[in-house]
Structures are given as C-alpha cells and as structure tokens.
Nucleic acid binder design. Structure first.
Lengths: 205, 205
DNA sequence: CATCGTTGAATGAATGTTCAATCAGCCAGC
DNA sequence: GCTGGCTGATTGAACATTCATTCAACGATG
C-alpha cells in the first residue's frame, strides 16, 4: 500500500507537472490574453478533457499555475551562501535582474510579467504578487541589515533602501520584456552600482 | 462644403473619441484578457456594429486605442516650464510617478500597465512602448544635460542617469497597480531623492 | 434621390465545460 | 491463481454560450 500510494502520488505529480508545463508553453506561445483551454490541451500530451479531472476549471488551473510560477521564481532567487553582505547583494541582484539573459530565462521573465499584468484587475493575482514582492524586499533588507551590523554598510534605513532596490529590479524586469532594445539594463544597473558605492558600501578607511 | 466637412470631421472625431472612451471603460472593468467587442459595445452609446464602420476589426481598434492611450499619457507628462533643472526634474517625476494618486489616475495607470503587459508577445505593442520609454528617457536626459551645463548638477552621464530614472519610474508604476499596498512608492521615492541629492545635485558651495 | 451613419439579426468559429464510455490496475473472494 | 467488480485515469463527442464579423435594411440629411 505504501508503495502503491507513493507511486500514485508520484504519477499525479507528474501529470500536474505536465499540465503546468503545457500551460507555460501555451502562455509563452500565445500570450495570456489568448490562453485557452484548447491551447493548453494542444501542448498537453494527454487530452484536454483530462484537465477537468485535475482542476475544477480554467480559473482553478490558472491559480495553481501562478503558484507554480512563483515557486519556481522564488527557488531560483534563493541564496544562502556565506559571503560578505556586499557579495551577497551582488549575487542576489544578478539572480533577479541579470544584465545578460539566456533565452530560457528571458521567456520565463516574459511569462512572469504577463501574469503580473493581470494583477491590476484580479485581486487574487494582486495578493500573490504583493507577497512575492515583500519576500524579495525582505531578502534585500536582511542583507542590508547584516551589512550595517558588520560595519560594512552605511547606516541607511534597510527597509527603505530595500524597497528602492526592489523597485529598480521590477523596473528592469518589465522594461526588458516589453521593449525591443535590452530595456536599458546595462545603464540602469551601472547607475545602480554607482548609487550602491556612494550610498551603501563603506570605504576601506 | 467647408463647414459640412468640418462638422462631419468633428462628428467623426466625437464618435472615435466615444469609441476610445468605451474601450477604456471596458478595459478597466474587465481587464485586457476579457476585453471583447461585445463589452466595448456595451460601454458604447451606439451599437457594436458601428465599431466595424470605423475600424477594420478588433485588432485595428486596439492598435488605435494603444496610440490613444500613449498620446494621453505623453500629453500629461509634457512640461515646458521655465524653471531651474532641479525643479523641472521634480515636476517631471511628480507627473510620471506621483506618490499620491487620485482614483482616476490610478485607473489610467492600471490600464496602461495592462497594455504594457501585452508587449512581451506582441511586437507592435513592444515597438510602441520602446518609443514611449525612449521619449521619457530623453526628457530626463535633457533636464540632466541642462543641469550640468548650468553647473547645477554634477557631471554624470545624462543618458545613463536618465535610463536609471526611467527604470525606477517604470518600477514604481508597475508595483503600484499590481500590489495591494501602495507599491512602496513613498520609500522608493524617498530613497531616489537621497540618490539625487548625493549623486546629481551640486551643493551650494 | 443619394449618401452615410446606424442598427438588429444572423453567421460560423471558438469558447469553457460536461458526460457517457473506455482503459488499466488493484483487491476480495472463490 | 483466477475472476469479477471497483476505482481512478483518460478520452472523444457533445453542449450551450460567446466570440468576431458580416450584411441587408433603415432613417435622417443634404
């Protein structure tokens, strides 16, 4: 019985993962506005009817998909390395707002921003992205607080500085996927570095 | 004939404006993903069939709507006042990323960001928002260049600093309409002010 | 009468969803 | 060990509804 239920659970997880993958593919191919059950079914290896065996309907599926995407993103951003605060900040910034993006990451970012684009008129989405932003802000704030405690950073308000960093990151992300150029990531990041050097990082002396 | 065509043109403009208004109302009510000809027609005083007398179809209408929205936005952001660069920069920032928003402006911003959310998978939208961002960046860059010329600002790279400001503005805007809190506008703006004071504005001495 | 803005009804395609019918694997009883 | 039912995964066909779009007809206005 133990094995059976384990296998069953694993199979169900596989199916769910396949549905999430199909939804992701359909989203990146057709965009959120043209995301239909039909198109998700087309990307899905099994039949589209099966989607209704695993989910109550389109809304239910998309809610789960949003969670799936946010979990992926947060797993990606997580960093628990033991470095000095300055290096940790650089690592985190590179993960959430890298200057150069491979095609896969670019597509993922685009999908994420399309989802975020639904938040203005969908309270459930808005709630999720609020949490999501808060989590990232707290990561920034922790690093900054550590830096101050260690004496490596100037004594800024960690939350305020973190919110500013988050805003810049979100600006970089939206610009990158909604512009034909690179979204000015290089310039923005360089100027952000100047800000960090002047405002946050304490000199050697 | 002169009067006739003028009136006719004016009437046509009125109708077009009414269609744009109806589209705007439908968008803010239902979101871009659920924006249909039917719903635009519902908000429209005339019948939905009339939409096809003025536009080739839904796509054509939406393309015009995007232009309509961007024109509104750019008219709003325009500022040709004769002030010193520092005051002009503050004015511009207040217009494009105000800390406090009345309901109407908030709804407009939300609609704009929903449109921007289509850009990742729609090349026409992407092109428009690229131009749009460049225009705003140039406004920032001009002010900064003027400030440097007048000796009021430090000698930074105007384009680079402008791109950074633009990124922050876009970050503020997306956060504000996709979060349940105020998007951290206050904190971000305060920290941006600190950056400007330290990096851009020259002291009295 | 001719023109043009305007409309309601109608079209076929696409939408989300349901459902009866298979299929495969597992457990109970013989 | 075999059989027969039970459960859950899976499917194709069907459903009503909504979609974007078309069009013939109407009415006002010149």
């Amino acid at each position: 019985m133990g094995d059976t239920s384990r296998f069953a659970a694993a199979a169900e997880d596989d199916t769910r993962a396949a549905i999430m993958r199909a939804t992701y593919d359909a989203l990146t191919s057709h965009g959120y506005a043209n995301l239909t059950i039909q198109r998700i079914g087309d990307e899905f290896e099994k039949s589209k009817s099966l989607l209704y065996h695993h989910y109550d309907g389109k809304d239910d599926l998309l809610v789960d998909f949003l969670r799936f995407m946010l979990e992926h993103w947060e797993a990606k951003a997580e960093c628990r390395e033991e470095q000095d605060p300055q290096a940790r900040l650089k690592t985190l910034l590179d993960r959430v707002a890298a200057v150069e993006l491979d095609e896969e990451t670019a597509a993922f970012t685009a999908a994420m921003e399309e989802l975020r684009g639904q938040a203005p008129h969908d309270a459930a989405y808005r709630e999720r992205f609020t949490e999501h932003d808060h989590a990232l802000r707290e990561q920034f704030a922790e690093i900054i607080a550590d830096g101050i405690e260690e004496g490596a950073f100037h004594e800024v308000d960690p939350t305020r500085a973190a919110e500013f960093l988050l805003t810049t990151v979100n600006g970089v992300r939206i610009q990158r996927v909604t512009r034909d150029d690179d979204g000015g990531v290089g310039a923005a990041r360089a100027e952000l570095q100047t800000y960090l050097d002047a405002r946050l990082y304490r000199g050697e002396a």
